[in-house]
Simulated scan of single mutants.
Amino acid sequence: MNELNLPRMRTISEAAQEIKALDPRTAITEYHIRQLAVSGVIPRVKAGKKYLINLDMLIEYMSDPTSEKFRPHPTATVNGIRRVG
């Protein structure tokens, strides 16, 4: 049988809560996760007014933030300001 392996997609708030549940003393905040998503470092999917992110990819990023796969998207904007250079 083919088993469908769906990604664990969470809102930014839910992702922050799950990280907090895994590590109650974490310094990772909702704001930081949002900035990672908006800047394109972590891929995101817009669902209405909310962003959904892959929780496993967020955890992978936190394990190795210097990995080549986690680079800001060149056309991503942060707070309405486009990255130059």
Rank of each mutant, 00 (worst) to 15 (best):
N2G: 00
E3H: 00
L4C: 07
L4P: 10
N5T: 00
N5M: 00
P7T: 03
P7G: 06
P7V: 10
R8N: 13
T11E: 04
I12H: 13
S13L: 07
S13C: 10
A15F: 09
A15D: 10
A16C: 08
E18K: 05
I19W: 15
I19V: 13
A21I: 09
A21E: 05
L22V: 05
D23G: 12
P24N: 02
T26S: 13
Y31H: 12
H32F: 11
I33K: 05
I33N: 01
R34T: 07
R34F: 06
Q35R: 08
A37R: 05
V38I: 15
V38W: 02
S39L: 03
S39N: 07
G40D: 00
V41A: 01
R44G: 09
K46G: 02
K46D: 01
A47N: 02
G48Q: 00
G48K: 01
K49S: 14
K50V: 04
Y51W: 12
L52T: 02
N54K: 07
N54D: 13
L55V: 13
D56K: 11
L58E: 01
I59M: 14
E60P: 11
Y61A: 02
Y61C: 06
Y61F: 09
M62W: 08
M62C: 14
S63Y: 09
D64K: 15
P65N: 07
P65I: 01
T66P: 01
T66W: 04
S67F: 06
E68R: 11
E68P: 08
K69D: 07
K69G: 07
R71N: 13
P72Q: 02
A76V: 07
V78D: 10
V78Y: 14
G80R: 00
R83T: 15
R83Q: 14
G85N: 14
G85S: 14
